[in-house]
Simulated scan of single mutants.
Amino acid sequence: MLHENVRQIAVAFELAGIGTIIIGAIYSTGKYLKHYFNKDPEGYRKYRSGMGNAILLGLELLVAGDIIGTVAVEPTYQNLGVLGLIVLIRTFLSWSLSVEIHGRWPWQENNKDLKE
């Protein structure tokens, strides 16, 4: 019973991650079209940033779902190894997206904020 409830929570996190990416993509595209038709030269940069942030948040929720799901199932060494690999790949993707969006590593100071 408890395992089934935990598994449902894991599925809810995974669905929330997928939904976040889809809704973020739709929202970012809508904002981009608004900027495009208003001839905003920063529109594409804002679009990429919005899309990247939606993907980052979605990946975080998917990782949480994977962790919860692995704990709900028998935590064998094989399952933990697969989970570790999934988390490693998604963390690399998150860091890559963060560098692409912000132009710096996640642990570096944001010089832009310091100047303001």
Rank of each mutant, 00 (worst) to 15 (best):
Y44H: 07
R104N: 12
Q8I: 04
L80N: 12
V6F: 11
I55F: 09
N111K: 07
H3M: 08
L15G: 08
N5I: 01
L85I: 10
G81L: 14
S49A: 14
T20Y: 03
T29P: 05
P106D: 07
K112S: 06
D40Q: 07
A16I: 03
K39N: 07
I26W: 11
G69K: 02
R48W: 01
I86C: 03
V6E: 15
H35T: 07
H102W: 06
N79Q: 15
K112E: 15
I55A: 13
Y32E: 01
A10G: 11
N111G: 04
L2Y: 11
E60N: 06
V87M: 04
F37P: 01
N38K: 07
V11K: 09
V99A: 05
L83R: 08
A64F: 05
E116H: 07
H3W: 07
S96F: 04
G58V: 10
K34C: 01
V71C: 12
Y47F: 13
V11G: 04
R45Q: 13
E74T: 10
L59K: 08
L93C: 15
L62N: 06
L114M: 09
A16V: 03
K112C: 03
T70H: 05
R7F: 06
A12D: 05
Q78C: 00
Y27Q: 14
L33P: 06
N110R: 08
L85D: 15
A72T: 14
F13S: 04
W95F: 13
I22H: 04
L114C: 02
E100Y: 04
H102F: 08
E109D: 14
V73M: 10
Q8T: 00
K39L: 05
G84P: 05
L85F: 14
V71Q: 14
I9L: 15
I22E: 05
Q78G: 00
Y36W: 07
L80T: 00
N111Q: 11
T20P: 06
P41R: 00
G43Q: 02
H102V: 02
G19K: 06
L93T: 09
H35E: 11
L33Q: 10
L88H: 05
L93I: 15
G30H: 04
F13Q: 04
Q78Y: 05
G84W: 00
R7Y: 09
R104E: 13
V99K: 10
K31D: 03
W107F: 13
G103T: 02
E14W: 06
L61F: 14
V87E: 08
F13T: 00
Y32R: 01
W105T: 08
A25V: 09
G103S: 04
L61V: 02
I67Y: 06
G69Q: 03
P41S: 03
T91F: 13
N5A: 12
Y36K: 02
K34Y: 01
L15N: 12
E116T: 08
E100K: 01
L61W: 15
Y36L: 05
R7D: 11
N53S: 03
N111E: 13
L85E: 13
N53T: 04
I26P: 06
N38A: 03
T76R: 12
G65L: 13
A64P: 00
L56D: 10
N79G: 03
T76N: 12
G43W: 01
T76F: 12
E116K: 09
Y27A: 15
R45E: 14
I26H: 05
G19N: 03
L85A: 13
G84I: 02
G58D: 11
E100Q: 01
R7M: 10
K39T: 04
K34V: 01
Q78T: 15
